[in-house]
Design a protein around this nucleic acid. Structure first.
Lengths: 231, 231
DNA sequence: CGTGTGATTGACGCCTGTCAACGTCTGTGG
DNA sequence: CCACAGACGTTGACAGGCGTCAATCACACG
């Protein structure tokens, strides 16, 4: 447990579903939530677990993935500050369909499910906002599905790099802020680690990207977009 | 427009989100909804359209698909009696992320979005039920994603056949009730039509299935499960 | 300095997509 | 009633993308 974070003062709340709560509701929520620091590599929950609440990401990055045959991971999405994880399982009353693992040190605020349901019952704007979020995520999942099903590994990798830049941004030198292993990149686009490595080299040769160890810098966005078949 | 269907009397309502409405709410909804018959091949809405409401499937089957590069369809899911389509787009306030096309003659009841939002604001059980549905669908989408990303075409086809049987059932002779063209099967599992044809022949040779034109009968479920790598 | 994790490269071959040709069936119009 | 068009199904040939295996390198850490 770290120093408690007050929803009312939280600087990422404005991006989250919490923003729809009244100050009183936020204060009440503070009494029930638990904010913890999770280090890189920490497991927040396992696929198949029954969760007892949801997690609001205050900082850091968490990857959500399913484990397939032979233990290969399929990354479903990344959650960053302002995102909520675990809500799918709570609201559908199923066990977790993914595991959640910390990619970059994260502070997560836990909200017990009974408190969540209380809020949902009393605050219809909050419900609508959650619906909004769930449906948006559903749309992204569907798009992702079609991408993986129809595009080549090369196209998918180019697109993934662009998406990572859009979602997580770049540092002052232009390098993607998010650092993934080659294997994680592979698990994101559903391919083998070696394929990612080979294609990254090709992208480098084509002057689409620069590589410094695990850090990647996109230098020809148009070229990547063309490669990804995006318009 | 066909003979109006009263929600209160509708025999599939018990399976839908409508079941959470009071009799008064149902009666009120009857005044606002429009029930139409759609023939096979009819387009309910196009990807990219902004929808003005949601559709409740009273009977028939509708396929939801995305159109990728080169116009290839990727089927996202099928909707049958009791299912709702178009809600994702309305609730996320985005344009439709899929097209909806009738696979088997269908009766669809249209509910305008302002009525939907009225209900959501006033009836928290209804909201929760919609959340439940959306989150369940999200879980299915995620599973589907991992399947397509990690499994071979052979595994996917075996699994798809099993899923079609689970979701749509079989007739008195054991043949799948849902009739899809080879191309639709291919677009479901993200492969080429020819691959589906070849694999279906192999499954027949392996005595996993019987084929009568477009009708398919599963005769060795265990064999198919093994082939699909399911446990 | 040994150990382990991650990155890289090469060899190899199979799965699967593409192209082309042909067969089958159904509905339509003359 | 027949001819024809068009949609759908089937089969074969072929190539190349990509997964797998194995060996090696780079780097961090106790």
């Amino acid at each position: 447990m770290i120093r408690p974070i007050k929803c009312r003062d939280c600087d990422v709340v404005s991006k989250t579903i919490i923003k729809n709560l009244s100050d009183e509701e936020k204060d009440k929520l503070d009494l029930d939530k638990a904010c913890n620091l999770y280090k890189r590599g920490a497991i927040v929950y396992h696929e198949g677990n029954r969760l007892s609440g949801i997690f609001c990401v205050n900082s850091g990055i968490v990857k959500l993935f399913k484990t397939g045959v032979e233990g290969r991971e399929q990354i479903i999405r990344f959650a960053k500050e302002g995102d909520v994880i675990g809500y799918r399982s709570i609201l559908s009353e199923e066990v977790a369909c993914t595991s959640a693992k910390v990619v970059e040190d994260a502070i997560l605020c836990f909200i017990p499910s009974d408190k969540l349901f209380n809020l949902l019952k009393k605050n219809s704007d909050f419900s609508l906002e959650l619906l909004h979020m769930a449906c948006k995520e559903l749309g992204e999942s569907n798009s992702f599905l079609a991408e993986i099903a129809q595009k080549s590994v090369r196209e998918r990798l180019a697109e993934a790099l662009l998406l990572l830049k859009t979602n997580f941004g770049a540092d002052e030198n232009g390098y993607l802020k998010i650092n993934l292993t080659r294997e994680e990149l592979a698990n994101l686009i559903g391919t083998a680690t070696e394929s990612v490595i080979r294609l990254l080299s090709e992208f480098k040769d084509d002057n689409f990207i620069e590589i410094q160890g695990r850090k990647i810098k996109l230098i020809d966005l148009a070229g990547l977009k063309r490669t990804a078949n995006l318009f």
